[in-house]
Structures are given as C-alpha cells and as structure tokens.
Design a protein around this nucleic acid. Sequence first.
DNA 1: AAACTTAATTAGTTAAAACTAACATTGTGA
DNA 2: TCACAATGTTAGTTTTAACTAATTAAGTTT
Lengths: 144, 144
Amino acid sequence: MKKLSKSLEDYIEAIYIASNGKDFCRVKDIQKILNVSKPSIVNALSILKEDGLISQEKYGYISLTKDGERKAKNVYKKHMIITEFVEKIFELENVEAQKIACEIEHIVDKNIYERMEKISKNFNERTKRVLYGENDETDRVKGR
Amino acid sequence: MKKLSKSLEDYIEAIYIASNGKDFCRVKDIQKILNVSKPSIVNALSILKEDGLISQEKYGYISLTKDGERKAKNVYKKHMIITEFVEKIFELENVEAQKIACEIEHIVDKNIYERMEKISKNFNERTKRVLYGENDETDRVKGR
DNA sequence: AAACTTAATTAGTTAAAACTAACATTGTGA
DNA sequence: TCACAATGTTAGTTTTAACTAATTAAGTTT
C-alpha cells in the first residue's frame, strides 16, 4: 500500500471523523471539518477512490473500505497521541495542541510517536516540575 | 516584514549556513546543503531579492542584507533549539533530530520553542528517567 | 588567448493542492 | 408536482515549488 500525501492523510482522517460511528459520510461533513472548497474535496475523493481507500457512487455516500479504515484509524490514532503529548509537554490548550498535531502528524514516524505515547502515559505534576526545572521533593532531600 | 514560506525559510537558512562566517556564498554552496537543482535555487533567490533579504548581481556572490541576516539567524536559532530538544527528549542521533527539526521549525511558534529551550537547558539523566517512567531516587525514597 | 570546465541562468514543464464559476442532481416544502 | 434549496460535480485557473534541457558567463589550463 503506497504512502498518502499529507493532504490525503488529512482527508482520510476527516472522513473517518465525519463518519462518527456510522459507516458513511458526505462531502459537506468533510467540508465542515477541513474548511476547504467542495471541489477540492471531490478531487481528493477521486484519488482516494483510485487508491481503493474509499467507495462512493456519484452524488452518493462516502464510505471507507477495509484498507481505508485501517489507514484512517492509524492516522487518527497518531493524531490523538501527538495532541496529548503536545498538550502535556508544552502546557497548551487542547485546541492549540490539535492544530500543531495536525501538522506534526505528517512528519513523525512510528518510533517517535511511540515515545510520545510513553511519555504521555507517564506524565504527571512531578514530570512537569522536573522538565521545567522547578524544585521538587528530590531537590529538597538533596538540600539544594 | 512579511512572512516567508517554508521553503524560502529553508533557503535563507541555507544561505546563512553556506556563508559560514564569510559574508557571501554561491549558488553551488546552497546546492550542497539543500540538494535541489540550481534553477530552483536561482528562482528562490529572485524572490528573496525582491523581498530585500539578499543581494546578488548576475553570476555574482550572494549575500544577506541586514534584514536577511536577522531573518536567517532567527530561523537558524529556531532550528538549533528544536534539534536539541528533539535529540534529548526522543533520544535520537543528531542527524535524525536535524531532519525532524527541519520540518518542525516551520510549524512551531515562539511560545513553543521557548519552552523547548527551557526544557533542553534543564535536561539531564534524571529528567530522562522521570520522563520515561523509570524508577529514580525519589521513587526509592518513597519505597515504591 | 583559445579551449575546456565549472557555475549560473533562462525557458519551459510538471505536480500537488487549492480556488471560483458554472452546471447537475437530489431532496423538500408549498 | 413543481419549484427552490441544498448538495455534489466539472471545467478551468492559480500558486508554489520542484524539475530538465539548453544557454550563457566566468574561471582555469595549457
């Protein structure tokens, strides 16, 4: 299965989110999520169709194929992991973190987002203090 | 001063690096750094010229203007900060970190890379242990 | 200084990803 | 049911950033 471009990753992720539990969505649902013109979407859909990641007949519902769903879930998971990581490590609002995740998700490979996941899983107040170099219990013990 | 596109940021950074202390460089020096064709470089130079960030006469040396140098230093500094951060937090080789930094540097804003800087400055073995959830002194004290 | 090599430029093309305007289809309310 | 609104598609354009091939200029060597 060949690699999708950044923008196609965004589209397939948006289709997944737009479907929201159901097994289909429509162009307008994607539009709400991505804020691009309908022709842009239609064009992207035609490529995803060629790649066998979605199916849709003219003027009809859009749905992910097995392959497409696998792909979409991957992208989405990555997105979630990165958002959480960015949110925690830089102390950002979710909305802000989302924005950054959107861009970073096309850059980082598995190795890295697995590390992000690990770090997030472990993250707490102390992590934050240690990270930003504020004093914590350990420092007091050592008399600094 | 208007914002440069990602690729122009890369070009101006490359010019800065290619100049390497001197106050000029040549197209071929940029080519070594960016691995793009000469026409691509020439085209980028024409835009940077229009924007008043570099000066060059035909077939001549390329040099940054005051504005251009300021801009270039900014981009370069950002690049260094991000590289260091990525290197430390994900335990990557410098080369790997560089690659990621190249892409991320066009995404993150001041607020974020200042946080990166802070984190890097403070980073040590203990930070790493805490981040990845391995036991350290504090844990032992607490008898976990 | 003529010939050759290296470097830079010009001209023209390509590809990705967006857009607008115009058109087609579907669905709904009067 | 027919008209209108909402949705989707087509066609054509624009922008950005790359490319190759061909040309021109500069620098070196003999």
